[in-house]
């Protein structure tokens, strides 16, 4: 089954260690909420603001999830120190998308997928099926995994430890002008490759439409 998605708007951000200029104070005026946000949540909120997100359904993807919170928990268990309740509540994979829905008071469906290096493709496939309902959807793919032990697990030597892509999409009957060719990018986590490829191609087109095969 093939489903064509119109790319209404797209945004991308990445950094070697930490994405700066995420406009946190403007986007999250409440300090208490801002202080609780994870890196992934800050990137997700920023990207959503760049693609005109209002209250669309959200399909979020992350391969590694909330690495900082997970590491804090495992290390506190190992060191027998007090486990932070904030770290635990922020440790689930749907944390960034949940903070985005809370911030925007969006009661619509939010779902999260995670398939390691296929995560980006899973976001696209999930989005394609859900787009059949006819509404606009926010597809988000974020991975932020800068922590002290990252060198031990960063087997692909990815240089950008924080990155994210957002695509605002809707279903269309128009012919696709973007195919997913699985383009590689040695700097970015493979978990984002297909979404990044669509972002890059969409920037060169007036009416970008991607074909998603299920």
């Amino acid at each position: 089954m093939k489903i064509n998605l119109k790319i209404i708007s797209a945004s991308f951000v990445s950094a070697d260690e930490k994405c700066e200029e995420l406009e946190e104070k403007r986007l999250v005026p409440k300090m208490m909420l801002r202080r609780r946000l994870t890196r992934g949540a800050k990137i997700a909120i920023y990207l959503a603001s760049k693609v005109g997100y209002k209250n669309e359904r959200i399909i979020f993807g992350s391969a590694y999830g909330e690495v900082k919170a997970t590491v804090d928990i495992v290390e506190s268990i190992y060191n027998k120190t007090l486990l932070s309740p904030t770290a635990f509540q922020n440790s689930v994979h749907n944390t960034p998308a949940s903070y985005l829905s809370i911030l925007s008071e969006n009661q619509a469906e939010v779902t999260t997928v995670s398939d390691l290096f296929n995560t980006s493709l899973s976001v696209l496939k999930t989005g394609a099926i859900k787009a059949l309902r006819g509404d606009k959807l926010l597809l988000l793919n974020v991975d932020a995994f800068n922590f002290t032990g990252v060198k031990d697990i960063n087997i692909c030597s990815i240089s950008k430890l924080e990155s994210g892509v957002a695509l605002m999409v809707e279903i269309t009957d128009e012919e696709a002008n973007i195919s997913i060719d699985n383009q590689k990018n040695s700097e970015i986590s493979p978990s984002l490759w297909q979404m990044l490829e669509i972002y890059n191609k969409s920037k060169k087109l007036d009416n970008p439409i991607v074909e998603v095969e299920l």
Binding site: V92, H93, N94, T111, V113, S114, D115, S122, K125, L214
Partner: peptide, 9 residues
């Protein structure tokens, strides 16, 4: 044939 993993706690 294919698979997707959902993780929403």
């Amino acid at each position: 044939k294919d698979s997707i993993t959902f993780s929403t706690a």
